[in-house]
Write a protein that binds this DNA or RNA. Structure first.
Lengths: 340, 340
DNA sequence: CTGAAAGCGCTTACAG
DNA sequence: CTGAAAGCGCTTACAG
C-alpha cells in the first residue's frame, strides 16, 4: 500500500506538504503542488480515510435507523437524507431494524464510539427501549418521524400526526359522515386521537369497535381488516386508513364488495405518496412534509457537528396538509337528501 | 475520552489483556476478565472502532450503490443486503446515484482506500462510465442486477433479463397475440431483445414503432406513453411493460380509454413485486429472484473478504419465472373466433 | 512555506 | 497468561 510518506519521498517534500495538497488545507506553492500531484498520480496514491479519521476524530459518516426500507415513506426519508449528506460530503450508514428490538440493540451498540459523526433515528417502536444506550453517545443524536412519546433526551423533528388525523376526520365531518371505520397501525395512536377529536368536536364518538388494528404491513392484511370493518358495520359511509398500505387494502375491499368510492363509501388516507394520486379514484389524503422533515433533522445534526456541541433539545412539529381528491364525498344519505 | 489504557490501569492489567477481553480473542483467566469488565463498566469505556480499523485494516463495512431507493426493486435489494450484512456483523454504507453520473463518480471516489471492506453495485447506467475508477480498488467489488453490458473486470450476479423478456413475449404469443406495444425503459434493452425473440421465433416482428421508451420513472410519464401507444395502434391487443411503474401507467391508460383488461387488451409486466398481485386485475408478470440475487452477490464479497483475495470473475445469471395471473388472455379476435 | 516529531487508540508479534 | 514496544497512516502544533 502506497502511503503519504511514499508520495512525500517521491516528490521530495514532507508529508506535511502532501497532507496539505490532499486535504486542500494550507496554501502550497503551485510548483510544489504540481510535483506532489505528479507523484500521487505516478504512485497511484489514495489516502487512507481510516487513518485520517483517527487523527481528526471525524468519520464523515452519519448513521440512519429506519424500521424498513419498504414503502414510500421511509424510502423518501432515506433518499432525502442521503441527498443532503452527499452534498455536505458525508456518507450514509443505513441500519434497518425490521421491527426487531434485539437487532436494533445490536446495531445501536455497534455504532458506539467514533464510527459515526451523528445519528438520526426515523420511526419508533423497535428502538425505543434501547435508546438509553445512547445516553452518553459521543455524537449528536436526533429523532424524526416519531409518533409515539419520544424520550425527552433528544431533539425531535416530526409531523404533527395528531393534526394529520384531525384533518382527515374534520374533512369527513364536513362532508357529513357519521358512521365511519378506521384501519390503523397499532403505532398510529396520534393520528387516531386526532381523527377522534374531529368527531368529538361535533359530539360524536368513533367507538373502539369501529377501529381495526392492522399490525402486519401487507395489503392482504389490510384487505382482510377492511372486510371485517365492512362486515361489522355494513352501513358505514367512510373509512379512514392511517397509512398507504392500509388505504390500498381498504379501497380494494370496498370495491370488491360492490360498493363505489366515493358514491357509497368515502376513503381518506394519510401521507400523500406519489402513487395514490393515480389510484382509482384518486385518493383524498393528508400530505406529510417528509422531505422537509428529513432535511431539518439532518440540519440539526450537521449544525451540532459543526458547533462541536450537543444539539438543542426541542421538539419540532411540521404541519400536515389536507389534499382533497376524488375518493371522498358526501355520504349516500346526505347526497340523496340534497339530490331529491 | 476513556481509552483502553485507562481501563488497563484501572483493572491493573495490560492493554493487551483489555484488548483480548474486548475482542474476545485469546483466552483470559475468568478472574482477570471480571476485573476488566468491571473497569469497563465503571469507566463507561467504549472501544474506538476507527482505531481498531486502522490496526486491523478492516472497517466491517460494505458499500452498496443503488440508482434510487424508490420502488420495490431496489428497496428489497437494500433490505436483503442489510439483513445478510447485519448477520455477518457488517455495516451498510448506502450510496444513491440518482441517475447522476457526476454524483456517482464523487461517491465512488470517496469510497476509495480502506473505508469499506467490499463494494456491491446494483443497477447500471450512472456508474458504468466511472467503473474504471475501481480498477485498482483494494477491496473486492461485485455487480448485481446488471442488465447492460458490464465491464468484464468484476463478477456479476444478475437476472437473465433476456429470458425474462422472452417469457413475457412467449406467453403473449401462446395466447395468440400479434399486434402488441411495448413500454420500455431505455435501459431495458435485454428484456426488449428477449421479447422480440419470442415473436421472431414465430416469424413475427415487433417494429420499432411499437416501442415507446419512457425515460422518466413516473406513472404519469408511463400513462402518457401508453396513451401514445394506444393512439399509434388502436387495434393492439397486448402491452408489454418492462417494469413496475410502466405497468401501472399502462393499466391506467387502457382502462381510462374504455378498454377492458384482458378482454380487449392484455397487459404483461416484469418483476413480481408485492403490489401487482392485488392490482385490478391481478398482473401477469415475470418474477425476478431479487433476494436470491442480493444474497449471492453479498456471499461472493464476504467470501472474498474472508479469503483475502479478489473474488472470482464470473457472470452468474439467475432464472426468472413467468407468473400468470388475470391481466392476460387471448386477443379479442381469437376469442371471438373460438366463441362463435 | 517546509521538516522532524508527537499523537489519534487500537492490535499484534515478541519476550517473559 | 501478561508487559513493554512497535506500528497502522494520517494530522497537527512547533520550530525553522
Amino acid at each position: 500500500m502506497v502511503t503519504m510518506r511514499d508520495v512525500a519521498e517521491r516528490a521530495g517534500v514532507s508529508t506535511q506538504t502532501v497532507s496539505n495538497v490532499v486535504s486542500g488545507g494550507a496554501r502550497v506553492r503551485p510548483a510544489t503542488e504540481a510535483k506532489v500531484r505528479a507523484a500521487i498520480a505516478e504512485l497511484g496514491y489514495v489516502p487512507n480515510l481510516v487513518a485520517r479519521s483517527l487523527s481528526t476524530g471525524s468519520t464523515m459518516t452519519v448513521g440512519l435507523f429506519v424500521p424498513t426500507t419498504d414503502g414510500w415513506f421511509y424510502s423518501e426519508i432515506i433518499s432525502e437524507v442521503e441527498d443532503i449528506l452527499e452534498q455536505a460530503g458525508y456518507h450514509l450508514l443505513l441500519c434497518t431494524t425490521r421491527l426487531d428490538g434485539e437487532r436494533a440493540r445490536r446495531q445501536l451498540a455497534g455504532l458506539t464510539s467514533r464510527s459515526v459523526d451523528a445519528l438520526l433515528i426515523a420511526g419508533d417502536r423497535d428502538l425505543i427501549d434501547h435508546l438509553p444506550l445512547l445516553a452518553d453517545a459521543r455524537f449528536p443524536v436526533a429523532l424524526c418521524a416519531w409518533e409515539t412519546d419520544a424520550p425527552d433526551t433528544f431533539p425531535v423533528v416530526t409531523v404533527d400526526y395528531e393534526q394529520a388525523g384531525y384533518l382527515a376526520g374534520r374533512h369527513l365531518r364536513e362532508l357529513g359522515h357519521e358512521r365511519v371505520a378506521v384501519l390503523a397501525s397499532p403505532a398510529h395512536t396520534r393520528r387516531l386521537d386526532g381523527f377522534r377529536r374531529a368527531f368529538a368536536r361535533d359530539g360524536l364518538t368513533v367507538p373502539d369497535s369501529a377501529v381495526q388494528y392492522v399490525a402486519e404491513p401487507t395489503i392482504d392484511a389490510a384487505f382482510a381488516a377492511a372486510n371485517r370493518a365492512l362486515a361489522a358495520d355494513p352501513e358505514l359511509t367512510a373509512i379512514f386508513a392511517t397509512y398507504e398500505v392500509l388505504v390500498h387494502g381498504a379501497m380494494d375491499a370496498v370495491q370488491v364488495s360492490g360498493r363505489s368510492i366515493p358514491g357509497d363509501v368515502s376513503v381518506v388516507g394519510q401521507d400523500n405518496v406519489p402513487k395514490v394520486s393515480r389510484s382509482h379514484p384518486a385518493l383524498t389524503t393528508v400530505s406529510f412534509p417528509r422531505r422537509e422533515m428529513a432535511r431539518q433533522a439532518i440540519d440539526v445534526l450537521l449544525r451540532a457537528i459543526a458547533a462541536g456541541e450537543a444539539p438543542g433539545n426541542f421538539i419540532q412539529m411540521l404541519r400536515p396538509t389536507l389534499v382533497v381528491r376524488d375518493s371522498s364525498g358526501p355520504p349516500p344519505a346526505a347526497r340523496g337528501t340534497s339530490a331529491c
